[in-house]
Write a protein that binds this DNA or RNA. Structure first.
Lengths: 336, 336
DNA sequence: TTGTAAGCGTTATCAT
DNA sequence: ATGATAACGCTTACAA
């Protein structure tokens, strides 16, 4: 029965609850070997399982943290979550993953629920729409780490990718391969990574003396991406290269190409900002900007655990470099 | 502060804790509108957040369930987990996902930890190596549902795919396209789905009067798959078609083909048993046997919730059909 | 309609 | 070395 309690064990072993508790917490320094053995026996005779809930209530620590991802459909989110889980499991803690689905209301609900469950801390991919709640957590010094996205005007531990630099180098790669008409496609510019990717894009073009064509900058919701691409390819001078702003946009680009019978890597060069599991098996193998998902997860977990343990940490952003992995989709532009 | 408690609210509102509790549980039937308002005011003045831990301790219900997947690297596990989470979120419950990593020891540890945390029930992709523990949970009538794999000699609610039938139809598809030398590659035959897939394979060959060549049946650990494939292709009469037993085996097949400069769909036909996210973008688009991951997750969640609510359920397997999605990798065999 | 008090299964403090 | 006893923050009879 799951209902055997510490009191039962105590009775069976002929000792008090406190002694059993001592035993369970491995403080057998001042315990006679005799009682120790009796308790041990009682425990597995009764098949006793301690109730962590009760312990947590008393100790004010659940050994559980929450992860709230903005959109679980991104490979990146999955990899980061996995990494965070691994980290906490190594430290005998649990992680609960929740998917806010890019919905600020859901995000709010999850923050409240997880805190009501007394999780020891939170790692959040913020929708960035709940500024008051974030601020409040920081003010209370509740352990929290933000991931992937910077929240404006908030001084909080945050782990992000070097989006500007990474995008810059991808665009430079296009230019080095002879491209000049380069497009970028992201979801709407509501969060920092997207903004920064556009920024890196413009910076690179500028540095190379290529004038920026606003028509080549797409930033719209997923369901409108294909329409925008279509518009682009109707132009007299369509782009010869495209940077897909994340893995979901990438799917749209692929589908667009398929529908319009365009050949990725032939009709246009392509780089994707994100880790793609089958990148070297898609046709053609696709050039990607890989984020250091695993390391970022570890870093965030580490920052969180330090806060939980009341250790001092830097309340600033820490940013990780990305890696441009060149495959066939972004080969040299064909001479016309 | 997160430390405001019900008592603080009660004091501030000038009522007793019980009344506040009534309020929180929305039992305002017999509550004067006056006190109701005072409590409301006190709550948001103090920014009070209830402590679910304490409540759970009292109610013996945490509104949390655990999911223990055998190997998180499978797309299928991820999809099922997502579906289970969705289901429980709809019911205002949480799900904690743990990865046993195909290790019975880890599985055991997670079962114990989650139960110690008093989760209301468990969905397990069993390693099938902890028979005593499974049996014990069933005996105790602890709510549990097994997923993907049948545990021998255990009468327990279990949600699985129709592996035999699905494999049969894939092999039949090969045969219909003129193949006779058909191989199957799975991980070791330690769990029911793999055994059943081999069974469906043999059944289909048998039904078509093709004699079974044991050399064509690979069942070995991932790191040895490529070696076995190599052996196969050294034969005088190598296979012309391969069924990859899951998504991880599929990767090995792809890498093998790449290394040996074999063309999938040309040098040999290929079907993969599993959902592949980029199936129609790999080259060539690959024929898959898709499992009903989302529905299976829902079903399992439903069976679990019913048990939690002490409703009666069938303690048997429920099996879901798979869908053979034919793409280019398994086209008709080229005439020689 | 609201309050009192016991109890959920632990841990922590202080005696002994 | 071990035991009483009071918390932890909530729910729930039952009383008022």
């Amino acid at each position: 029965m799951g209902k055997t309690t510490m009191a039962d064990v105590a009775k069976k072993a002929g000792v008090s609850k406190s002694t059993v508790s001592q035993f369970l917490n491995e403080r057998y320094e001042y315990m006679s070997p005799d009682t120790r053995i009796r308790i041990e026996a009682a425990i597995d005779e009764l098949n006793y399982q301690p109730n962590y809930l009760a312990r947590s209530l008393k100790q004010k620590r659940t050994s559980t943290v929450g992860i709230i991802v903005a959109n679980i459909m991104h490979q990146f989110s999955t990899e980061v979550s996995r990494s965070v889980e691994d980290y906490f499991n190594k430290h005998n803690m649990h992680a609960i993953v929740c998917n806010a689905d890019n919905d600020p209301e859901k995000e709010k609900k999850y923050i409240e629920m997880l805190r009501a469950k007394q999780v020891d801390g939170l790692i959040i991919f913020p929708t960035a729409q709940n500024a008051d709640i974030y601020k409040n957590m920081i003010k209370e010094e509740y352990p929290v780490v933000f991931m992937d996205r910077k929240v404006p005007d908030l001084q909080a531990p945050t782990v992000v990718s070097q989006n500007i630099e990474a995008t810059y180098s991808a665009i430079q790669h296009f230019i080095d391969n002879g491209h000049e008409r380069i497009a970028i496609a992201t979801e709407p510019l509501t969060i920092s990574p997207r903004i920064e990717r556009h920024e890196g894009y413009k910076k690179a073009l500028h540095a190379n003396g290529i004038k920026i064509n606003p028509e080549f900058q797409i930033s719209t919701s997923i369901d409108k991406i294909k329409k925008e691409l279509d518009r682009l390819f109707q132009l007299d001078a369509p782009p010869t290269a495209i940077l897909a702003g994340n893995d979901i946009v990438f799917i749209e680009v692929l589908e667009f190409a398929k529908e319009k019978k365009l050949e990725v890597g032939e009709s246009f060069a392509l780089v994707v900002f994100d880790n793609i599991p089958f990148a070297h098996f898609v046709h053609p193998p696709v050039t990607t900007i890989a984020q250091s998902a695993y390391m970022m997860g570890e870093k965030a977990a580490d920052l969180l655990l330090k806060q939980i343990n009341k250790e001092q940490i830097d309340r600033h952003e820490v940013s990780f470099p990305c890696e441009l992995i060149i495959r066939d989709s972004s080969k040299r532009l064909k001479e016309k």
